[in-house]
Amino acid sequence: MADAALQCGITRMTLEDVRKLLEAEVIVGSSLEQTPVEMGCGADLMSDVLAFAKTGALLLTGLTNAQVVRTGEMADIVGICFVRGKRPPEETVNLAVTSGIPLLATQLPMFESCGRLYGHGLKGCSEVCGS
């Protein structure tokens, strides 16, 4: 984890760094180390994600229904991490495969997940310029 932290300070955080920091399991997705994460967004309200997330964000959420992936697709989210040990149903996984959005799952609760990432330099959506 120290390695990941060090890397994040210097270069941009990738989904692989996120996976390490959150000790997360990969449900869908490959080449995580080639996927840069620009910012983080923690929300259970999808309309908030649509309103506030910007292109290149990672979504942390406690919801696991297929609309989470749809939301990610519309908002150009680069990856979704389910918190507090939640596992997505099959239809969510299938949709993630079709739309090419990586899915991770961590045992950590929402607050701690966000805290770890923020503490290691991942920006919040209001701190990043862009569409």
């Binding site: 259970d44 309200l45 999808m46 309309s47 908030d48 309103a51 959420t61 919801l63 229904n65 609309q67 989470v68 939301t71």
Partner: peptide, 10 residues
């Protein structure tokens, strides 16, 4: 399901 919080039209 994460919707219906009165934000859609906004």
């Amino acid at each position: 399901l994460g919707f219906g919080a009165g934000m859609g039209l906004n």
